[in-house]
């Protein structure tokens, strides 16, 4: 027997034509006018500045204006290592940014703690704010950061305006954490060479 697919059924399963056009338009606009909030804390910020300056010039990708106010920013770029003392600061900056918002973690330190597997350093900013794109490197070259930005464009172009997650704030839970403690411990585990680093009396 021939299986007939009703048009109403198809419409129920896939986003309708109008909506995809609208998504295309909105995402095109969003992706090409990302205003970055630079959160430069260490050496990676030097490469970030190089990316912003004339030779690499991320204004070519719509990041013409750096928003030094979180209220006017779309993407938080954490460029450099994050000490625990700055953790509440980056969290507050993130909370103050309007939805939709994205985060790029630039460099080994911001992504994993890098070589600083010690008492003072956050082991990856994803224990504190959600991260969309990780850019590896120590520091990443400007091309690397630009590639990360292009990946973020790609991600944004796959979003749909109807997705409620885009507008959902993700506050800290009642323990004052973003992730369950076991998960934080697990992603903060030493790896690579730092497994052998040890110091005590």
């Amino acid at each position: 027997m021939k299986h007939v697919v009703e048009t109403t059924e198809v419409a129920g399963q896939s986003p309708n034509w109008l909506l995809t056009r609208l998504d295309d338009l909105v995402n095109w606009a969003r992706a090409n006018s990302l205003w970055p909030m630079p959160f430069g804390t260490a050496c990676c910020a030097i490469e970030f500045m190089a990316t912003a300056a004339s030779r690499f010039d991320f204004a070519r990708f719509g990041m013409e204006r750096q928003a030094f106010s979180p209220r006017q920013a779309d993407v938080l770029i954490c460029a450099g290592r994050l000490p625990f003392k700055l953790a509440p600061v980056i969290r507050r900056v993130y909370d103050q940014m309007p939805q939709p918002k994205w985060v790029i973690s630039m460099g080994a330190c911001a992504s994993t703690g890098g070589i600083f597997d010690n008492y003072a350093m956050v082991q990856g900013i994803d224990t504190i704010v959600p991260v969309d794109v990780y850019v590896p490197g120590c520091p990443p070259r400007p091309e690397g950061l630009l590639y990360g930005v292009l990946l973020l464009h790609k991600k944004i172009k796959g979003e749909t305006v109807l997705d409620p997650e885009l507008r959902r704030e993700q506050p800290l839970d009642d323990r004052g954490l973003r992730l369950p403690p076991e998960q934080i411990d697990e992603i903060s585990e030493p790896f690579g060479n730092s497994v052998h680093q040890f110091r005590s009396a």
Binding site: F84, K85, A87, P88, R91, D117, N118, Y119, V122, Q123, T127, I128, L172, R175, G176, L177, P181, E182, I184, D185, S188, P190, Q197, F198, R199, S200
Partner: peptide, 19 residues
């Protein structure tokens, strides 16, 4: 003082965010 501090990483993050 241990290199990675005395508390677990989760506890360190919690205390830092509470500051």
């Amino acid at each position: 003082f241990p290199l990675r501090g005395r508390f677990s990483r989760a506890e360190q993050v919690r205390q830092a965010l509470g500051a």
